[in-house]
Design a protein around this nucleic acid. Structure first.
Length: 564
RNA sequence: UGCCUCGUAGUGUAAUGGUAGCACCAGAGAUUCUGGAUCUCUUUGUCAAGGUUCGAAUCCUUGCGAGGCAGCCA
C-alpha cells in the first residue's frame, strides 16, 4: 500500500516542509530529526494522527528519524498504562510506511531528568534562574502585573543552595519554584520569569521516588529536543507564544549549535465530533460511549476498531494539509478517503441487514445452485466465488415497499427487480401477519434470466442483494453514524449526541463470510464497508460498519445517508 | 486588556510580484446486474479601504473579523 506522501511526484508541500527543505539545501542541516511528544495522560486521537504523520512524514521524506518521546514531566497526571496504548497506536499508524524512520522509542523526557537538573544548576550559576518563595497566587499576580518579586535578586550561592535543598526534599509541595530570570515587564507573559521547576512529592511512573522536583514543559521539552538533536520541533499553535522562551533557554545556556527550532501548525478539528481529551474523557466516564475504543470515538483506537486503516488515515493526513489557520475539516473528507481506498481493495459480499423472506414459487424445492459472484469489479485479479441460490431467500426490508415513491427502482407488488448475480424476480403476493406487518413475499423468477442466461440482458432498473435462507449465516452488525447531531458540538455537548449513532441488527450473510478475516474490509454490496469486530468469536460474527456507500437515493429521499 | 498568530469558493488547501488552481461537498447529465464505481458538465472565492508597482491573493498602512496565550498543565 502506498500513500501519496510516498510518491515522489506527489510529495506534500507546506511551510514546515519548505523550511526543512531549505535547511537541507543550504547545508544548515544534514540529518533531519523530528519528534512526536505525547503526554501519557490519555489516548491518542485523530488529531495526534495528523501530528504523527507530519513528523514521521518529514523524517521519511528527508531521510531522517522521528523520536517518540513521552512528555512525562507531571507525575500527578500521567500513568504508565497510557504509554503502551500510545506506542501501540503509533506503531499501527506508521507500520509499513515510516517504521524505519522511528528513532528511539519509547523515549521519555524523564530519561533526561539528571541532565535537565544539571542545566538548571547551570542556569542558576549564570544568574539566569532563581529560586522563588512566592505562593502560586502571588506568582500569578506578579506576572499579570509585570511586577518583580522579592526573591528575584537572590545571590547565586543562595539560589544554588535552595535549589539543592528543593531537590533534597526539604520543602513541601508548592513552597518554592525555580524560575527563569528574564524580564517581568516583557509583553509576552511567557518571558515574565516563567517557572522552570516545581516541587511535587509524587511517585513518577518511570523514575519512582527519585525526584521530588519536576521540570515544567517549556524547560524539559526545549532541552530534551536539544539533547536528542532534534532539528525541527513541530508543535501546535498554542505553543506559538512559547517560542521566544524556547529560544531564550537555548541561548541562556549558550548551547553550541546546531540548535533545534520550533514550528507551529494548526491542530486538527473535525466536525460532528469532539477532539479534546477532557470531552472524550467525559464521554467514556459517563458511559455515553463504550470505552476509548468505541468505534464512534475519534481516538485512533476507536477509528481502528471501526475498521478504518492506517493507510487511509495517512492519506487523510496528507489531504488536509498543514497550515497555521485554525480550520474545521469536514468529516466527509475522511469518509471520502476511506471509501476511495476500500472501493479499490475490498472484496464484495452479500449480506442482508434487516431480513424479509422471499419465496420463489416457481423454483424447485430442495434445489440449490452455486452462482458466480465477482469479488471486486474494480480489481480484475480479485477473482470470483460461488454463492448458493435456492427457493427461499432473504432480501433487505428496505428493498421492498407497497407504496413506492416516484423513481423507486426496487421491489414492489407486481413489479420486477434483478437479484444480483442471479435471476430477475417479480413480486406476486405480499403475505402479512395479523398486525399487517409484511412477513413474506411470494415471487416468480424469470428462469432464463440468470446472469449469463438467455434473457439476462433484459433491462431491469433495479438490482438488489439477497442471501439464500437455508445457507445464510447469522451475524451481529453494528451500524455506526456520526456521534453528534450538530457540526460543532460545544457548550453542553453531551446533550447533542446522536441517538442513532449506534444501531445493532441481526443480519443474514452469504456463507463465505464464515471465514471472514479481521484484516479484510468487506463491502456488503449496496450497503457499505464492514470490518470484523474483536467481539467476534468462533461461530459468532460481529461486524462493524466502517462507512456506508455513497447513497444518492437516500439523499433524494431526504434521509440521512447513513441510515438505511 | 496586553501580546502573538491567522483571514483565498460552503469546507479544506495551492499559487512565494506575472492567466486564482486542486480536492471534498452540492447540483445537472451519461453509464451501470451495487441508486456504488466511472465519465462529462455546472454554481460559488482572494475580509475591507487605501498605497507601492507596468502588474498585488502575495509587499506597505489602516480598519474589520477569527483563533491562541496570560497554570507551580502540556
Amino acid at each position: 500500500m502506498t500513500t501519496p506522501s510516498e510518491n515522489e511526484s506527489a510529495a506534500p508541500s507546506d511551510f514546515i516542509r519548505d523550511a526543512v527543505a531549505e535547511d537541507i539545501r543550504t547545508g544548515k542541516r544534514k540529518q533531519i530529526c523530528t519528534r512526536f511528544p505525547p503526554e501519557p495522560n490519555g489516548y491518542l486521537h485523530i488529531g495526534h494522527a495528523k501530528a504523527i504523520c507530519l513528523n514521521f512524514g518529514i523524517a521519511h521524506e528527508f531521510g531522517g528519524v522521528c523520536n517518540v518521546r513521552m512528555d512525562d514531566t507531571n507525575p500527578t497526571k500521567e500513568e504508565a498504562e497510557y504509554v503502551d496504548s500510545i506506542m501501540f497506536d503509533v506503531h499501527w499508524l506508521i507500520d509499513g510506511w515510516a517504521n524505519k524512520n522511528l528513532g528511539r522509542a519509547p523515549g521519555f523526557a524523564s530519561d533526561y531528568f539528571d541532565q535537565l537538573y544539571t542545566y538548571a544548576v547551570e542556569l542558576v550559576r549564570k544568574g539566569k534562574a532563581y529560586v522563588c518563595d512566592m505562593t502560586p497566587e502571588e506568582t500569578d499576580e506578579y506576572r499579570r502585573l509585570g511586577k518583580e518579586g522579592p526573591f528575584r535578586n537572590r545571590s547565586v550561592d543562595e539560589n544554588l543552595d535552595f535549589l539543592a535543598r528543593m531537590k533534597a526534599g526539604e520543602f513541601p509541595d508548592g513552597a518554592r519554584t525555580l524560575r527563569a530570570k528574564i524580564d517581568m515587564s516583557a509583553p509576552n507573559v511567557w518571558l515574565r520569569d516563567p517557572v522552570l521547576y516545581r516541587i511535587r512529592h509524587a511517585e513518577h511512573h518511570q523514575t519512582g521516588n527519585k525526584w521530588c522536583i519536576y521540570p515544567m514543559y517549556d524547560f524539559a521539552h526545549t532541552l530534551s529536543d536539544y539533547i536528542e538533536g532534534i532539528t525541527h520541533s513541530v508543535c501546535t499553535l498554542e505553543f506559538e507564544v512559547h517560542r521566544p522562551l524556547y529560544e531564550w533557554l537555548l541561548e541562556a545556556l549558550e548551547l553550541p549549535a546546531p540548535r533545534p527550532h520550533q514550528y507551529e501548525f494548526a491542530r486538527l478539528n473535525i466536525n460532528y465530533t469532539v477532539m479534546s481529551k477532557r470531552k472524550l474523557m467525559q464521554l467514556v466516564n459517563d458511559g455515553l460511549v463504550n470505552g476509548w475504543d468505541d468505534p464512534r470515538m475519534p481516538t485512533i483506537s476507536g477509528i481502528r476498531r471501526r475498521g478504518m486503516t492506517a493507510s487511509a488515515l495517512r492519506v487523510f493526513a496528507y489531504n488536509i494539509g498543514i497550515t497555521k489557520y485554525p480550520s474545521m475539516t469536514d468529516v466527509a473528507v475522511l469518509e471520502h478517503t476511506v471509501r476511495e481506498e476500500f472501493n479499490r481493495t475490498s472484496p464484495r459480499r452479500l449480506a442482508v441487514l434487516r431480513p424479509i423472506k422471499v419465496v420463489i414459487t416457481n423454483y424447485p424445492e430442495g434445489q440449490v445452485e452455486e452462482l458466480d459472484a465477482v469479488n471486486n469489479p474494480e480489481d480484475p485479479a480479485g477473482g470470483s466465488r460461488k454463492i448458493p441460490f435456492s427457493r427461499e431467500l432473504f432480501i433487505d426490508s428496505a428493498d421492498f415497499t407497497e407504496t413506492p415513491p416516484p423513481k423507486y427502482f426496487r421491489l414492489k407488488p407486481g413489479s420486477e427487480v434483478r437479484l444480483k448475480y442471479a435471476y430477475i424476480i417479480k413480486c406476486d403476493e405480499v403475505v402479512k401477519d395479523e398486525n399487517g406487518e409484511v412477513i413474506e413475499l411470494r415471487c416468480t423468477a424469470d428462469l432464463e434470466s440468470k446472469s449469463g442466461g438467455a434473457t439476462s440482458s433484459r433491462k431491469i432498473k433495479g438490482t438488489i442483494h439477497w442471501v439464500s435462507a437455508s445457507q445464510a449465516i447469522d451475524a451481529e452488525v453494528r451500524l455506526y453514524d456520526r456521534l453528534f447531531t450538530v457540526a460543532e458540538p460545544d457548550g453542553d455537548f453531551k446533550t447533542l449526541l446522536n441517538p442513532h449513532s449506534l444501531e445493532v441488527v441481526a443480519a443474514k450473510c452469504e456463507p463465505s463470510l464464515k471465514d471472514a478475516d479481521s484484516n479484510v474490509r468487506y463491502q456488503f454490496e449496496r450497503l457499505g464497508y464492514f470490518a470484523l469486530d474483536p467481539d467476534s468469536q468462533p461461530g459468532k460474527l460481529v461486524f462493524n460498519r466502517t462507512i456506508t456507500l455513497k447513497d444518492t437515493w437516500a439523499k433524494m429521499e431526504g434521509r440521512a445517508p447513513s441510515r438505511p
